[in-house]
C-alpha cells in the first residue's frame, strides 16, 4: 500500500515544482483571482496600520487600493499581507504578494540586484533621531557614546553606522527584528536614541508611555525615497503601478478630487479629459479600461487627499507636506503628464 503510494506523492511533488516554473503575467493572475495581494508593514501608523476591526489604513494602503480601483474599479479588491523588513523582498520575489507598498527605500542595489523595480516615490523621507528631552541634547552631533535602538535589516541600520563613523563618534547599536520591540526597549530606557525614518519616528512616538517626553532631533541624515515595488520582468504590471501613482499626483495638480471628479468629467481642460478617459485611449495602453484613473480618484482620491487623511497636519502624526508637496508648490512631487 505505502509502496504504491510513494511514487504518486513524488510525482505530485515534481508536478508542483514544474507548475511554478511556468507563469502568466501578474495582471492575468490578479484578474483571475479577483484581488491584489499587497505586502505592507506590520503596523506603521500613517503608512499601513490595521485598526481594531482589522481594516488597513495609510498612505501605502491607499496606493494599493488605488491599484485595485484601476484594475477592478473597486478599491476593496485589495488584500494585505503584513511583512517584516526582512521578509518583504522574498515575499515579492516568490509571488506571495503582487506589489509591495511598504515604506521601502529605493536604493540602487535593491533596484538592480534583487530582480525588483521601484514604481516611483510616494513619500520622500529621511532618517532622523528621537531622544528623551531630559537628555538635554539638541543636535545629533552630541550623540557620541549613545546606545541606539533600531530595526534590523533596514537601510536605517547602515545609515546610522555611516553617520557615527563619519563623525568619529562611538556608539552601541541594538537592532530588533520588529518595530514594536524597538519601541518597548527604547521606552524601557535600554537605549538613549531611537532612529528610523522621520515619518516613522512621529508615528512610533504615539506608542510611547509619555510621547511628550521625547523629541525628534533636527538632523536628517539620509535620503529615504519610499516607494512601491514590483517584480522585474513584467513591464505591464510595472506600468500599472507607475501610472497609478502618477494619476494620483496628476489629479492633485489638476485639482481633480474624489468629490468633484464627476463634474470634472465635463471639464474643458484637455489634460483633465485625458486623465479621466474622456479623450484618448490611455487606459488601453496599460492594459486597463479607459476610466482607470477615474476609478482611482473616485474610489480613493488624489495624492493630497490621501496624504491629508493619513499623515497630514490634522492627523495624530501631524506631518506637513514639506518636500512632499507638488513641484509647483515647492516640493519634489512631479508626475509625467498623461498624453
Amino acid at each position: 500500500m505505502s509502496k504504491k503510494f510513494l511514487p504518486l506523492v513524488l510525482g505530485a511533488a515534481m508536478g508542483a515544482v514544474a507548475a511554478t516554473a511556468a507563469g502568466a503575467t501578474t495582471l492575468e493572475d490578479v484578474k483571475a483571482k479577483g484581488f491584489i495581494q499587497c505586502g505592507v508593514s506590520q503596523g506603521l501608523p500613517g503608512f499601513s496600520n490595521p485598526d481594531a476591526q482589522g481594516n488597513w489604513t495609510g498612505l501605502d494602503v491607499d496606493f494599493c487600493r488605488a491599484m485595485a480601483a484601476a484594475v477592478f474599479g473597486d478599491a476593496s479588491a485589495a488584500k494585505f499581507t503584513p511583512l517584516s523588513a526582512k521578509e518583504r523582498f522574498t515575499a515579492l520575489q516568490s509571488g506571495e504578494v503582487d506589489v509591495l507598498p511598504r515604506n521601502t527605500t529605493w536604493t540602487m542595489s535593491r533596484d538592480t540586484q534583487l530582480g525588483l523595480n521601484f514604481a516611483g516615490v510616494n513619500y520622500y523621507d529621511g532618517q532622523g533621531f528621537m531622544v528623551r528631552k531630559d537628555l538635554g541634547v539638541t543636535s545629533a552631533l552630541e550623540l557620541s557614546g549613545a546606545s541606539v535602538c533600531t530595526n534590523t535589516g533596514t537601510t536605517t541600520e547602515l545609515n546610522v553606522a555611516d553617520y557615527f563613523r563619519a563623525n568619529n563618534m562611538p556608539y552601541e547599536i541594538v537592532a530588533f527584528e520588529k518595530a514594536d520591540e524597538v519601541v518597548a526597549a527604547y521606552d524601557a530606557g535600554r537605549c538613549d536614541v531611537y532612529t528610523t525614518d522621520a515619518s516613522g519616528l512621529y508615528a512610533q512616538r504615539l506608542k510611547l508611555t509619555n510621547p511628550g517626553d521625547h523629541m525628534v532631533l533636527p538632523e536628517i541624515i539620509s535620503k529615504e525615497p519610499l516607494g512601491p515595488v514590483v517584480r522585474q520582468g513584467d513591464d505591464e504590471w510595472f506600468n500599472i503601478a507607475k501610472w497609478t501613482l502618477n494619476a494620483m499626483l496628476n489629479a492633485e495638480e489638476l485639482g481633480v478630487s474624489s468629490e468633484n471628479v464627476d463634474e470634472m468629467k465635463s471639464s474643458d481642460n484637455p489634460s483633465i479629459k485625458r486623465l479621466l478617459g474622456v479623450e484618448g485611449a490611455y487606459g488601453e495602453g496599460i492594459g486597463l479600461s479607459n476610466d482607470w484613473a477615474y476609478n482611482i480618484i473616485k474610489n480613493v482620491g488624489n495624492y493630497e487627499e490621501s496624504f491629508n487623511a493619513n499623515v497630514g497636519p490634522d492627523t495624530p502624526l501631524g506631518i506637513s507636506r514639506g518636500v512632499n508637496a507638488l513641484w509647483n508648490k515647492g516640493g519634489f512631487m512631479y508626475a509625467p503628464p498623461i498624453r
Binding site: K86, F89, S109, G153
Partner: peptide, 8 residues
C-alpha cells in the same frame, strides 16, 4: 538576517 536583507 541583516546580511540577507542587505544583499537579497
Amino acid at each position: 538576517g541583516t546580511v540577507l536583507n542587505q544583499t537579497g
